[in-house]
Write a protein that binds this DNA or RNA. Structure first.
Lengths: 129, 129
DNA sequence: TTATGTGCAAAGACTTTGCTCCTCA
DNA sequence: TGAGGAGCAAAGTCTTTGCACATAA
């Protein structure tokens, strides 16, 4: 794979996000320092990175595709109000065995838990009104 | 809410699916007996049903939106090869308590587990080649 | 009757692709 | 130099919306 300035910048931009940026956001941020970059290059590069396993596509609810730079085994809590996505860890669950009724369905490789609810910040806003 | 023939037929069509149909599939099937129905009516009606809680939107991987008629608490196993979505039940997990690090993030209302792997049918195909 | 729903067409949001020129290795 | 990448524009896919007519209650 060629090391182009675009790829380097996209990679750097990804590293600076601890959250879950969209292609659009990466593009917008990058444009400030790389004015000629195009959105399709960002899409193409993110797809490449995803194939290489450097990042992971994330599909939550009906929103646009997000990208996750956290490769540790983890899950997500999605606030139904502000749509924020937070990483959550639950190692005991990850280690637990699947019940037979599930494990016999095939070869199960990954498990990903999606928790939905209202985050503390949104709860606080509500209480202050 | 008005009880229109379209809505009735869409509802019936939904009931006949134990799997997870897309709006497009519902539309195609319905067309046979209701040739004038339009795809946007299907979309609109499915959105209405979703709001009413009669069905649930399902967003798995990068695929189009699917609709789930199974309202029991359950999870999904998605075959990464044939993209089939199977319902799975794990009541013990549903009953288990979330760790404090998670439950303190906010008010968590639902948990949905997505299992990814290769289903038995795809595994068999592989072995027979 | 009248609030609502439907069908049509068109727009919209997001993402991908074809092509030509460019550039890293 | 040559294979692979970038930028541009355009197309694609899935879904939603505006509007005029139709229809259930």
């Amino acid at each position: 794979m060629k090391l182009t300035p675009q790829r380097l910048e996209i990679f750097q931009e990804l590293l600076s996000h601890k959250d879950h940026p969209s292609a659009e956001l990466i593009f917008k941020n990058l444009r400030k320092r790389l004015p000629t970059i195009s959105l399709d290059t960002v899409y193409r590069t993110l797809a490449t990175f995803d194939e290489l396993g450097i990042i992971k596509r994330l599909n939550v609810s009906n929103a646009r595709t997000l990208f996750d730079t956290n490769l540790d085994q983890h899950h997500h809590f999605i606030c139904t109000r502000c749509k924020k996505v937070e990483d959550v860890y639950w190692p005991d669950f990850d280690k637990s065995n699947l019940p037979k009724s599930i494990s016999t369905l095939g070869s199960i490789q990954t498990r990903h838990l999606e928790l939905h609810g209202i985050c503390n910040q949104c709860l606080n806003k509500e209480n202050n009104m």
